[in-house]
Amino acid sequence: MSKPRVPVVEGMFREDAEGTGRLLGGKCPACGGFFFPKQWSFCANSACDGTELEDVELSDRGTLWSFTDNRYAPPAPYPAREPFEPYAVAAVELADEKMVVLGQVARGTDIGALALGAEMQLVVEPLYETDDEVRTVWKWSVSNG
């Protein structure tokens, strides 16, 4: 039997059909501003008096703002696999939310082929496994259209 897939942290994203999902953020009904992650219960826009945030799904597509990779294992609490597998990180700009969101780049992506402005799609992939669960995380993948 396959292990259940569980988000690596609660409340930041949701996995729908295997491999797809949405980021979960906050939206201020007063000013319309978005927040990710939804750190607090109120709006942090200094020009807004909003005292509550709605739970919203963020766009699952955006354009590539920048990217890099990590060739060496980061320190804890990164759950590095043994042997360490290098991974890339992308910063993606969401048009509707007018914000940039980081994520690892989907496994198998050729980062040499990435370029700023590329259309990116949110996916959900395993980050690591415990004895009982597959812990998942959101990642950015080059959009196939």
Binding site: F36, P37, S46, V100
Partner: peptide, 9 residues
Amino acid sequence: IATDSAVGA
């Protein structure tokens, strides 16, 4: 992990 949103400001 994310920037501020420029919506509404």
